[in-house]
Simulated scan of single mutants.
Amino acid sequence: MQDSGDILAFWARFMQAEDLTDATITERLRFIRHVERATGDLLTLTRHDLISFMGSNETWTNSTKQHYRSALHTFFTWLQDEGVRLDNPAARLPKVKARKRTPNPATVDDIALVLNGGAYARTRRMVALHYYVGLRVHEIAKAHGHDVDWNERTIRVYGKGKKTRVLPLNDAVWEVVKDLPRDGYWFPNWKANKLFALGEGHILSNSVSDVLSRAMRRSGIIGHKPHDLRAATATEQNRAGVSPFVIQQNMRHENMDTTTKYVLVDIEQMRAGFNALPAVPMPGKSNRRRAA
């Protein structure tokens, strides 16, 4: 295999054999094609080329750099294992120092602004599924009437890593979705995309992100991205006193460390925590006797 097209086609089949999701495979292929355009031939590029690539974009977030470094290591290790390259230019890339990101959830007022800022019904449904159910954009994109138990008011969600979970639909979101199609996608594709011909499937996750981003900008909301609506799902449950374990389950996180990245603890919650400390009587003076 000397042609990058053949290499990537075989890698795609390899990832399918690993039972990775279509979204993961598509994302990895897109990224490696971008690397090839930016650095050159996948079979001849060097470690220095990859270092220059990793250091070239000052707009990437810390988590993006970590993700990209991992993706490069995964791909070039596979190339070496398959004997396509004898070396691995990604084996000793600089480690990306992890920086803890402060949670940045949208506020309830922000969400109200979006819903009342001229958003169409389709957009309002996306907002409701993002906030009230904590769905990710790719989960919103493929929401289908067949996934809903219309008697129990629950929805089956196909999340990351092909993990399936059943989530309850609260009263607020039920009012939004109860009249949606029971036999069909809730967000059908109005034009052809990479997965479906016109009208034969659902929109893609980037379409959901675009719709929500435009709605937020139109409402005058700055400093937030659509995923911050999902952060609000965790933060507002925490403010309401919901058990951390329940929040973790509702967010569908494997561990609590991930959940804490979404939860913003505000100053009044901190104040309440300090005020919960048992008071210890404070003497007015030391009562120490002076030495004679």
Rank of each mutant, 00 (worst) to 15 (best):
L169S: 07
A172Y: 09
V137Q: 14
Y185N: 09
P168M: 02
N170F: 07
K163A: 00
K142V: 10
T164C: 12
G145T: 13
V173L: 06
I140W: 04
K191D: 12
E175F: 01
W174G: 15
E152R: 05
V173G: 09
T154M: 03
P188Q: 05
N151C: 00
R182T: 03
V133K: 01
W174P: 15
I140P: 15
G184L: 01
G161W: 00
V166E: 13
L167N: 05
L135N: 11
D171E: 15
V137S: 13
K163G: 02
K178V: 04
V137C: 14
N151A: 00
E139I: 05
Y185L: 07
D171L: 11
Y158I: 08
V176I: 12
A141W: 01
L167Y: 03
N151Y: 00
K163H: 10
L180I: 07
K162D: 08
V157I: 13
I140A: 14
D179T: 10
D183E: 07
L167D: 13
N189P: 13
I155K: 00
P168K: 02
E152F: 01
P181A: 02
A192T: 13
A172L: 12
F187L: 15
A172D: 15
K194N: 10
H138E: 14
I140R: 11
K142G: 09
N193Q: 11
L169E: 09
F187V: 11
H144V: 05
L169T: 13
N189H: 10
K163P: 04
A192M: 11
N193A: 13
E175R: 09
G145K: 08
P168R: 01
K162V: 00
F187D: 14
L167F: 00
K178N: 09
G159D: 09
H144P: 12
E152D: 06
